[in-house]
Computed example of a mutant assay.
Amino acid sequence: MASHRRSPASSSSGFSRSAKVTVLSAAAAATAAALGTAPANADPGSPAETTRAKIDLLYEQAEKATEGYNKADERADALREQVSRMQDSVARGQERINRMRGALGVVAGAQYRSGGMDPALALLLSEDPDTYLDKAAALDRISERQSSALTELRRAQRILAQQRAEAGRTLTELERSRAAVALHKRTVERKLAEARALLNSLPTDERDAYDRASRSGRDDLPPAGGEAATGRAAAAVAAVRSAVGKPYVWGANGPSGFDCSGLMQWSYAQAGVGIPRTSQAQRNAGRHVPLSEARPGDLVTYRDDASHVGMYVGNGQVVHAPYPGAPVRYDPVGMMPVSAVTRV
């Protein structure tokens, strides 16, 4: 996205004036495309300008699909754990029912072996009728226990049937979530392939200018001074700074590669804080504050749908994972329309 590129003022000193003008025009054209208007100084008929704007749009669409992938994948992981717990519970329930059936089968077998004779009659015909009353009382207790066992067996069978039905519904939901993951993955891969093809179609000098505008490194560190991070925010800021230069990898949350929300989750994990996986969920992972009151460690989400996120590190800068081909880097906090500033 052109809005993810560093402004010409922050580029290296070796960046020529003509290249700076080219990149600035590309950024203006992409911004205008997002707003549905064309900048006054843009040449709407320029093939290279149009191509760059299409590349930026494809990267933006790929990023939105990536966040959809992250959300679906997170849901699938949760469902897999839930299904596993349900299956364990069903297995334990079945074992319990088997034991109950076995115990009842012992009684039934004894009755069968006695020729099916009514136990009360068997006691009456016993050789020692003086003990009849004691045996009859014992028989009553056995019958009560057997009746109770049958009732418990039926209840256990109903519970097991309910658990199996619930597990079946959860498995169906898991399959839907897996299908959503696959769909988002195909969408991301298609958009990125289209963007790469368009980028390769640019003349060499235009492609090099685009690449230079997307390149970042340790020489991009903002000046010292400004707000100081404290506590867990300081640890998260230190972590996100350490990731500068690492590659953008969609669907990844470190430590060797990141997408935008994966970088935020990983950075706060290094501070011992768990935050949600997607940028949309991260927007609501804490207290919202005005942009004018942003402190290092605050999460800054962008666009109305919060499909991109970076971490404010002070001096009007964020660190974020922009898009494929542009590694984790510093950019101005106002690089895109801000959706929210969230203090974790």
Rank of each mutant, 00 (worst) to 15 (best):
residue 1 M to H: 04
residue 3 S to L: 06
residue 4 H to Y: 14
residue 8 P to C: 11
residue 8 P to F: 10
residue 9 A to K: 13
residue 12 S to E: 11
residue 21 V to Q: 15
residue 21 V to E: 15
residue 25 S to Q: 13
residue 25 S to N: 14
residue 27 A to Q: 13
residue 37 T to A: 09
residue 38 A to Q: 14
residue 38 A to M: 12
residue 41 N to H: 14
residue 49 E to L: 13
residue 51 T to V: 07
residue 58 L to I: 00
residue 60 E to S: 04
residue 63 E to I: 04
residue 64 K to H: 15
residue 65 A to G: 06
residue 66 T to H: 10
residue 67 E to G: 05
residue 69 Y to S: 05
residue 71 K to N: 13
residue 72 A to E: 12
residue 72 A to F: 09
residue 76 A to N: 09
residue 76 A to K: 14
residue 79 L to N: 07
residue 79 L to V: 01
residue 81 E to I: 11
residue 83 V to Q: 04
residue 90 V to D: 03
residue 90 V to F: 03
residue 91 A to E: 14
residue 92 R to D: 15
residue 94 Q to N: 14
residue 97 I to G: 11
residue 101 R to P: 01
residue 102 G to L: 06
residue 107 V to Y: 12
residue 112 Y to F: 10
residue 114 S to C: 08
residue 120 A to T: 07
residue 123 L to N: 14
residue 128 D to Y: 10
residue 129 P to A: 04
residue 130 D to S: 15
residue 132 Y to G: 14
residue 135 K to M: 12
residue 135 K to T: 06
residue 137 A to Y: 06
residue 138 A to M: 03
residue 140 D to F: 10
residue 141 R to L: 04
residue 143 S to N: 13
residue 144 E to P: 00
residue 148 S to H: 14
residue 152 E to N: 14
residue 153 L to S: 09
residue 154 R to W: 00
residue 162 Q to F: 00
residue 165 A to L: 10
residue 169 R to D: 12
residue 172 T to K: 10
residue 174 L to K: 08
residue 175 E to T: 14
residue 176 R to N: 05
residue 176 R to L: 01
residue 178 R to T: 03
residue 178 R to P: 03
residue 181 V to P: 09
residue 182 A to V: 03
residue 183 L to H: 08
residue 186 R to K: 05
residue 186 R to P: 00
residue 187 T to W: 00
residue 193 A to D: 03
residue 199 L to E: 03
residue 201 S to F: 04
residue 211 D to M: 15
residue 212 R to L: 11
residue 213 A to P: 11
residue 215 R to M: 13
residue 216 S to Q: 14
residue 220 D to M: 08
residue 223 P to L: 01
residue 227 E to C: 02
residue 229 A to G: 05
residue 229 A to K: 02
residue 230 T to G: 12
residue 231 G to M: 08
residue 231 G to H: 13
residue 235 A to L: 12
residue 244 V to T: 09
residue 245 G to P: 10
residue 249 V to R: 13
residue 254 G to C: 08
residue 257 G to L: 12
residue 257 G to C: 06
residue 260 C to N: 06
residue 262 G to R: 13
residue 264 M to V: 12
residue 265 Q to A: 06
residue 266 W to M: 08
residue 267 S to H: 05
residue 269 A to Q: 13
residue 270 Q to N: 03
residue 270 Q to A: 09
residue 272 G to K: 12
residue 276 P to T: 08
residue 276 P to C: 08
residue 287 R to K: 09
residue 287 R to I: 12
residue 289 V to C: 05
residue 290 P to S: 13
residue 295 R to Y: 00
residue 295 R to S: 07
residue 298 D to T: 02
residue 301 T to N: 05
residue 308 H to L: 02
residue 308 H to I: 07
residue 318 V to L: 07
residue 321 A to E: 02
residue 321 A to C: 08
residue 324 P to G: 02
residue 325 G to T: 00
residue 326 A to H: 01
residue 327 P to F: 07
residue 329 R to G: 06
residue 330 Y to W: 12
residue 330 Y to G: 04
residue 338 V to M: 05
residue 344 V to N: 10
